[in-house]
Design a protein around this nucleic acid. Sequence first.
DNA 1: TATGTAAATGACAGCGTTGTCATTAAACTA
DNA 2: TAGTTTAATGACAACGCTGTCATTTACATA
Lengths: 352, 352
Amino acid sequence: MSVWLIHNKIRIINMKITISEVAVKAGVSIKTVSRVINNEIGVRSATKDKVQAAMDELNYRPSQAARSLASTQSFQVGFIYDNPNAYYIIDMQNGILNVCRKQNYELLIHPCDAKSANIIDEVLFLIKRSNLDGLVLTPPLSENQQLIFELQKRNVKFVRVISGKGMVEDAAHCVYLNDRAAAFSVTQYLIDLGHKDIAFICGDPEHKSSPERFEGYQQALRQNNIKIEPNFLIDGEYSFESGVNGAKQLLSLKKRPTAIFGSNDEIAAGALFACRLDGIDIPTEISIVGFENSPFSRQTLPKLTTADQPTESVAIAATQLLINQIKNIPTNTVIEFNPELLVRESTTNFNG
Amino acid sequence: MSVWLIHNKIRIINMKITISEVAVKAGVSIKTVSRVINNEIGVRSATKDKVQAAMDELNYRPSQAARSLASTQSFQVGFIYDNPNAYYIIDMQNGILNVCRKQNYELLIHPCDAKSANIIDEVLFLIKRSNLDGLVLTPPLSENQQLIFELQKRNVKFVRVISGKGMVEDAAHCVYLNDRAAAFSVTQYLIDLGHKDIAFICGDPEHKSSPERFEGYQQALRQNNIKIEPNFLIDGEYSFESGVNGAKQLLSLKKRPTAIFGSNDEIAAGALFACRLDGIDIPTEISIVGFENSPFSRQTLPKLTTADQPTESVAIAATQLLINQIKNIPTNTVIEFNPELLVRESTTNFNG
DNA sequence: TATGTAAATGACAGCGTTGTCATTAAACTA
DNA sequence: TAGTTTAATGACAACGCTGTCATTTACATA
């Protein structure tokens, strides 16, 4: 805070605090302050404390611009996504932001069309143009083998959020959402309620999560010696409409299921809606479960039983993995999350 | 592109192109290149062309880090928001990003709690900390008079996206969404269909859009000499649940409305759901309209008639306004958008 | 205590731009 | 044409950090 006299007016000017001010206050060189900022080894802990105290007292924030100009890093990570589910994106974004802020990284956001022919060039160009230090990738981008290959070839740091275990093995860092196990739990829960005739409405075949959830469903039935009824297996995609159509198809069967497992909440909401239209009470006549715990699952009557996808936690873990990688801090390669069963109002027991 | 000999291997190194390379190639000083980059006046157009050609040929991108370090600008704008509607945020974000990219600005995103006691300090601190050049504000933050005042006092550049006309006059730049006119059109449309008993389920009283939409509704009724039935006016908030409850209340009336205007799509979806539960067919028995054209309005059966809020266009216009301000380019102060009626399946004519 | 070694710390150049001010070229003027 | 004004252009020092390498300090050893 310094005072300037301009003509006859006094202007209080809030000087920008730089590394030099901190150095002076702490009684060390700017280089030592720099070391503390970057958490480098070889600073005596007493010195470190002094510097930290000075930084706190002056409320100092290093200038990202100066840092990235002086170093080879940009202190920016990118979040490249193609996902129609805005709630998912916002949750991811919040989680990433959360870690970035703590670690003094900036986030660059880039929506894209994963199906575009030159998506790989687009991503590579973006990295170079903005000099990104790393990338957070979500499905379906995170499942694009060609893209992963090109990134590895160029030694670009990245984390992937994925749901298919098959993709975990290729040594690239990832956060793995065990959709299969979660789908298993959900199905087991229905079975425990006494259901045997459990239908499954499948999600988008392009998303790896679809076959994973389906596999979990199948495993649970198999393990309980329940025969899988082909008529109860409905192709679909991750949409409300798909749920409506799937349920209609199921309701037209002469032997109806007593429970419906929608691959995600939108499908389940659609199925619920279709049942209601048909005058079928949920859950007394048919139990319905969703997946993902999206806001959608709370905006139905009754509210959907579903599997809670901890998206924000996933984002936080993924970003931490990425930044560790960037900073060459030894770190896990894979972190696994297990979505948990969330029992609400759309399911009840069945005594056939 | 230069070639290095390391041991017996030849490594092709992709040199970073800097302003100096461009200057050499164009045969001018770096300062002149800088002038061209920043579109400054006082460069002969022949010179400008030469420089531009050199930049194109070398595929040169100025380093944001160096620019912001050397200048007083940061080339970053902030998007600070508190809005539970993820789709709205994503649309806004995409629009802002769109303009930012073209203008070589970065976007910093900051979710917050607008109701927090120290929200103003939080925003001011953020601006200082990240040295932001400007701010895009959406409701309810854009409607916080105290915040606006503090920003103006500190000479911070910003644009507001707002829906209440009352707030336009205070000389701050804004994009104004004429919700009132749109609500008028929606109501007029119902009236034209023959409806007279039109109920209104109100939105969140904290959002300025609520009274605006209500006012449009009232104006239309008044202008058509239709008496407003107090029982048809339901307090609520912008949620599905609120729509369900509102509709239930309306259906319990001995004289039911023939049409329901939900202040937003979630409310309308809730109302639609409640009607369905009651065995009432939409639209033959009751017409329902929403507002906002959120994905929600397409995930109901029948699909909702609504007013289309061109969120992304609003974001684009707002960001352009902001950047013009930052660059001191003379610009509009207010841009008005009119949401347009979007007729879908949830409304039909009534012949009472 | 003297000596060698490793651990801390510091001095200083540079990162790629923009701002300031000086210089040069062009365009008037009489 | 020479002199004067104005428009273009350039030289060079910042901007706030990090990397490199030199120097100092602390610690261990004999």
